[in-house]
């Protein structure tokens, strides 16, 4: 929280230095995010994939693992949902949706769990690198599928897949964007919360994350829970992709590199891995993004300022030791003024 406040203040200073009115700009940002029903619809809709993927990243963090590749798992989820979405026909709408969502979830889980999970558990390969590499592989795989000549390429000039059968689309609740997808996000947060704090599996997963040595001594298999955590994490990111494509794009296409998987990491960090915190953080960053567009239109302040703010927030979250260090530095300065620095001062 403190991190965001500091970041927002720094953003205001940057804007002011460049000759913009920071108050007006931030005002436009807030209005753009929540001011109208359209804005609210976009903000809530944008928060859904962030929340789902953010829950995934948080689950991995709980087990002491850094899933930096949620983006790739997200796209694998999209790919599988779309494939199921236009290949299967004749299913009742609700069942079709369900099949797509489950397929996306499982695919994301396998993508995150199998290779990075096993490589980490049995070969010691760092999951930061492997999940990141798997993420790029997924993105190129998706591009290959829809490029001209690719197996999922829809006839026509654009690099895109055919559309998902309309029956499987999620229902719009508040135009233009908010769909029943929002229930998936809330539901997933509840399930993750319940699973983390009320099941033996969640308990062991947390134990492995909090102290793998003690977990091992207590008879918990650390490798098994490593694979499991990365798999669950991938499942949620895959679910994010599946739900999002059923709600909005309805087909696999590029052009807009969404980056939900990356922002999801920021969301999880800011929420300190609590499932309900993830919902709030997702809303915050989604608002930043949709509000940023309005800010650019109203005050001419580029929306990319919101990325600057995000970067600063992450920096301050990581560098939390800055606070005690600043206090210590201030005390030392005061102490030094009050008395001559003693010989013991060298202790770093």
């Amino acid at each position: 929280m403190l991190a965001s406040v500091v970041a927002i203040l720094i953003g205001a200073v940057i804007a002011a230095v460049l000759g913009f009115n920071p108050l007006a700009a931030y005002g436009a940002l807030v209005t753009g995010a929540f001011g109208t029903s359209m804005a609210l619809s976009s903000t809530l809709a944008g928060a859904v994939p962030l929340a789902l993927a953010g829950l995934g990243v948080a689950v991995a963090f709980r087990a002491g693992l850094f899933n930096i590749g949620a983006e790739g798992q997200y796209w694998i989820g999209v790919i599988v949902a779309v494939w199921l979405g236009y290949h299967l026909t004749g299913l009742p709408g609700w069942l079709h949706t369900l099949v797509c969502v489950v397929g996306a979830t499982l695919a994301g889980g396998l993508w995150g769990g199998v290779i990075p999970g096993l490589a980490k558990a049995y070969r010691g390969a760092h999951e930061v690198i492997t999940t990141m590499m798997m993420s790029y592989i997924a993105i190129y795989f998706g591009q290959y599928l829809i490029a001209a000549g690719g197996p999922m390429h829809a006839p026509g000039y654009n690099a895109q897949s055919p559309q998902i059968v309309k029956d499987a689309w999620l229902t719009v609740l508040l135009p233009p964007q908010l769909t029943t997808a929002v229930f998936f996000a809330i539901g997933a947060a509840l399930v993750v919360w319940w699973g983390t704090f009320h099941t033996t599996v969640g308990f062991r997963l947390r134990a492995v994350g909090a102290n793998p040595h003690a977990a091992r001594y207590a008879g918990i298999s650390v490798p098994v829970y490593t694979v499991l955590a990365l798999g669950l994490s991938g499942m949620l990111a895959g679910l994010a992709g599946g739900v999002q494509v059923l709600a909005l794009d309805h087909r696999l296409m590029w052009g807009f590199n969404t980056g939900y998987g990356y922002t999801a990491i920021v969301v999880a960090l800011m929420a300190r891995n609590h499932p309900f915190g993830v919902l709030l953080a997702a809303l915050f960053f989604s608002a930043l993004s949709t509000g940023g567009q309005n800010m650019q239109m109203v005050s001419q302040l580029p929306s990319s300022l919101t990325d600057v703010l995000t970067g600063l927030i992450v920096f301050f979250v990581a560098a939390e030791r800055i606070v005690p260090l600043t206090i210590a530095w201030y005390r030392r300065r005061r102490g030094a003024r009050a008395q001559v620095a003693s010989a013991r001062e060298g202790g770093r």
Binding site: R204, A207, A210
Partner: peptide, 27 residues
């Protein structure tokens, strides 16, 4: 011990899969 866990959680650490700590996988 898991120092970040509460005493309840630390008590459960070894036998979390058995009563009285859990029933059918639920804490």
């Amino acid at each position: 011990l898991v120092l970040d866990f509460t005493l309840v959680e630390n008590t459960m650490l070894r036998d979390v899969a058995h009563p009285p700590f859990s029933r059918r996988g639920l804490l």
